[in-house]
Design a protein around this nucleic acid. Structure first.
Lengths: 214, 214
DNA sequence: ACCTGAACACCGTTCAAGT
DNA sequence: ACCTGAACACCGTTCAAGT
């Protein structure tokens, strides 16, 4: 497309908006990733977008609504990464659990948003719909689906939050040293064992699911 | 004690401070319970205590440190409620899990603090020390102790956060209605089933623990 | 030792105004 | 329709000063 054609196009539709909901949302996530949730503000986001902070309010009614949109995008990603298609429900749940925890590692600053916010946006529902469809095709009743889904998702949220909170816990090492048994057991709770700890609890839950499906 | 005696006492020690770490901490919790975490500020806390906001900084280095102290108090309470003395470790863990979830219901506004903050204060350690001592007396090795402790505590954090986030989720009912399977499974995820869902997942984890102990 | 008060560098959001 | 700019009512924290 020539420069003239572009010119003609853009001059026809009076002028395209420089902001979009998507651009704001993804810039918000980038800022949160870079500087943390506490440091994130609509004013800084405005600066990053090259506009006044108030311009954002034309696209989102509040900062809270914008954060919901960020969560929605991240949750949709979990759904895409772990497409529950060919496998059985136990394995689909395992993949999703891993992808969900992976999200916590990829976006440590944004993850607390997901874990504390209500799990009820468009993108989240779309993803759950496919997951629950698969359960039905496997002949798993709704109650069992609900129970294991809740157990696994709660477990993953908790584990991930725990892992994130453990960053910089070395500072507490001296106070912990005064508690003999805590020190002893804590050896197994260190970051080096995070993968093992996660898979262990997940295995316990999914083994029970596998037994109850058969 | 007569008024004169009181007068003599207080005049001897030049003047007792009107603030203490404990008074500030418990007033902070009261404010968070009443108005929520977002609305909580050092300035409002100052007003509630009858002093300038800045007076708090003589007792705590920052708002963050004060919130850590609030978490510490709440965690110590869980330890006291569920005194792991006479029972075996499986049942001790079950009681603690219930007490921990109970905390979320008693202090819904403060609970996210506990779940997202590092689990490493004086009061928390004192409580864990007793819990891990009990595990040792039962002959449970440190690795198994660590694995199940982590699994159960992560599960409880996640479940509790989930339950709190579900408050006011009725607003999302219309969007959920467009997803057939989500609607169907969600019937079992409603507040009426929260107790059942919690006990179900907890049971799965603790049954596995009971098996591995024997 | 314990607390005040002014000040600094921020917030989210409303609202009238610009283009 | 889309964005600006001033304004309002807040924040956490520093620091000098008071008692």
């Amino acid at each position: 497309m020539t420069a003239a054609a572009v010119e003609k196009r853009t001059s026809k539709r009076k002028k395209p908006p420089s902001l979009t909901r998507e651009r704001i949302r993804s810039e918000a996530l980038k800022l949160i990733d870079a500087e943390g949730l506490e440091a994130f503000s609509t004013r800084k986001l405005g600066a990053a977008l090259g506009c006044e902070a108030m311009a954002i309010y034309w696209y989102y009614p509040s900062k809270e609504a914008l954060l919901d949109a960020v969560v929605d995008e991240l949750m949709s990603r979990v759904g895409r990464v772990a497409a529950p298609e060919a496998t059985d429900w136990v394995e689909a749940l395992r993949e999703i659990a891993r992808a969900y925890r992976g999200l916590a590692h990829k976006h440590p600053n944004a993850f607390p948003l997901i874990a504390t916010r209500r799990f009820a946006t468009e993108g989240t529902f779309a993803f759950l719909e496919r997951l629950f469809e698969l359960a039905q095709r496997q002949g798993i009743d709704d109650r069992t689906t609900a129970r294991f889904f809740r157990a696994v998702s709660a477990y993953c949220s908790g584990i991930a939050l725990n892992e994130l909170a453990a960053r910089g816990e070395e500072a507490d090492r001296e106070v912990r040293a005064r508690f003999k048994r805590v020190s002893s057991v804590s050896r197994w709770l260190e970051p080096a064992h995070f993968d093992d700890l996660f898979e262990f609890g997940l295995g316990v839950l999914l083994d029970a699911l596998a037994r109850s499906v058969r």
